[in-house]
Structure formats: C-alpha cells, structure tokens
Nucleic acid binder design. Structure first.
Length: 282
DNA sequence: CCATTAACCTGACAGC
DNA sequence: TGCTGTCAGGTTAATG
C-alpha cells in the first residue's frame, strides 16, 4: 500500500493521461471494493471530463466537469495500470485485462486505466467537489505533512494528548495524515526516537525534530518514486509500487546503517511491525 | 472519551 | 508439488 509518497507518485503518473480528458466508457466489474460503489457510478463518470487530479493524504481526488469528485483510495494492494492506445509510431500489443481489474477507465483517446486491487481494501466514492473535504472519509484527517499547518507547535500540542507509543501516534491519521508503517519507522530512526516511547513523554525539542524528518523522508520518497516512474514508463505503465532503500524497514537482524554495531530489531505494536535500532533509538 | 484488537481479502513466501 | 502457517505498505467496527 501505498503511503503518501506512493499515492503522490500514482497521481503524478495519472495526471498527464487524465487531466482534460473525457472518460468515454467506465467498466465496473463488481459491486464493491471495501464498500459498495456509489449509485450509478458508471453513469456519473461516463462522458465527464477530468478537470483536475488532486491528492489529500492517501486519497486521489479526480475532479469532474459535473461538479462531482471521484475519491479513490488504493488500500493495501491497489494499483493503477496505464496502457496508452497504439499510435502510428508505437505499435504494441493491446492491453490484456488482469485478474482483479475491478474498475477500468477507457478514455476518449484510447488510453486504458485499470484500478487493480487484489485485497480489495481500496475504495471509491463520488461526492460534490465543493464538499469533498467534508466527506466522511476525509473529514477527520489531520494536516498534510508537507503543508504549512503541520509544524512544531501543532505536533507538540497533538502529541501531548496521546498516551500511546509515538509509533502508534504517528500512524494515527488524525494526528498527521499520510504516514504509514514504513515511513513512520524511517522517521523514528532518523530522529533517534524509540518507537516504544510514550508520545506524551517526548520533549518539545524531540517532537519538533520530527517535523523536518517527516518532510524529508516523504519528499525523498516522492523524488525516488518520480525517478522510478520515469523508468517504469519505458516498460509498462504500472504505478503504485517502487523500490526504496530503507534504513530500518524490513531489515530485522541486519546491521544498523549507523554502523553502531547493533542489529535492527522488530517488535509488534498495535498489530504492526516496528523496525528500529535499540542502540540509536531511545 | 481513549486505546487495543479483530476483521476485511488475496497472494507471496518459508518450512515441512 | 502441495499443504499449512505467517505476513503484508490501511482503515474501520467492535471491544475493553
């Protein structure tokens, strides 16, 4: 699943193909993902022009000229597969429908964009564009970590109330929206904070250090996604997953990148794996 | 109110 | 080659 950087990469990949284009035909191959699709989703999408592609947290927002917005969440396993129509210069095999292609957008220019989601933890809904921030999926989200309202005073205040470990608090989308398991682990390693430390017990200075660390980790991941996006375009249009070089995530037993001589530990917190260096993170 | 747990699903992978 | 068990980048409803 895509955390914020992966979702932003998907958004940027889709943008040139969708913005200003007409959804000529929309295939809906099942009644639901995590929840039922909205009534008459096909009819409300077909023939509409995409006016903008935006992102809020881990949600992709597809604005339409009908004053409605299609809200898309990729869940854990959601992907977008783009297949451009063949041209005179570039002839290739027509795209083959894949297992778990639940919704397929056929654009007027012949581009095929498939939403594929094996686990079906993803979601789609339609809502008036003017009220998209009030939608029940979005209206409890905390600030965007890359925006101005996410700053040290805000985070100090928000964490003061949290009796849970800092790892759990940063995964709480009401505190800050867009972080997932991987990037929380990476952020805590960079700031030298143990995932097990109680959020409300952290000094203001340590909390303040989280703000730029979160920005940096996310921005680097978006940049790395951007490069993998360019690479991917050479071969296929699949968006949503790419390689990263993580300092701690999924590195249980491997040496700490700080060369402190300690190996990375894994603990389970709130049912999720946390990876950390017990020597560098206190 | 808050915090933790179970549940939603399928696929990949390790071990036997 | 199967089988079984475990785990997975998210989020919500149920439970304590």
């Amino acid at each position: 699943m895509p955390e914020l950087p992966e979702v932003e990469t998907v958004r940027r990949g889709l943008q040139p193909h969708m913005e200003g284009r007409v959804m000529a035909r929309v295939e809906v191959n099942r009644p639901d993902l995590r929840w039922p699709f909205p009534p008459n989703m096909t009819g409300r999408l077909q023939g509409k022009t995409v006016t903008a592609l935006r992102r809020r947290s881990k949600y992709i927002l597809v604005d339409l000229d009908s004053a409605e917005t299609l809200i898309i969440h990729l869940g854990m396993s959601g992907r977008m597969q783009i297949d451009e129509a063949p041209t005179a210069q570039f002839h290739h095999e027509p795209p083959v429908a894949q297992k778990h292609d639940h919704v397929v957008f056929h654009l007027q220019d012949g581009t095929r964009i498939a939403f594929n989601d094996a686990r079906r933890f993803g979601a789609m809904d339609l809502t008036p564009t003017a009220e998209v921030e009030n939608h029940w999926l979005l209206n409890k989200l905390g600030p965007e970590p890359l925006g101005n309202s996410f700053n040290a005073p805000y985070l100090v205040e928000a964490l003061k109330k949290k009796s849970s470990p800092i790892k759990t608090a940063l995964l709480d989308q009401r505190v800050v929206s867009g972080l997932g398991n991987i990037y929380v682990c990476e952020v805590l390693f960079r700031t030298g904070i143990s995932p097990k430390r109680k959020a409300s017990n952290l000094s203001a200075a340590r909390v303040a250090s989280l703000v730029p660390a979160i920005r940096d980790v996310l921005e680097e991941a978006i940049e790395s996604g951007g490069s993998s996006l360019r690479d991917h375009r050479q071969t296929n249009g699949e968006l949503g997953y790419f390689q990263h070089n993580f300092a701690v995530y999924d590195r249980e037993g491997a040496p700490c990148r700080n060369e402190c001589g300690t190996n990375i530990f894994r603990v389970v917190q709130s049912g999720r794996s946390s990876f950390y260096c017990p020597k560098c993170q206190r």
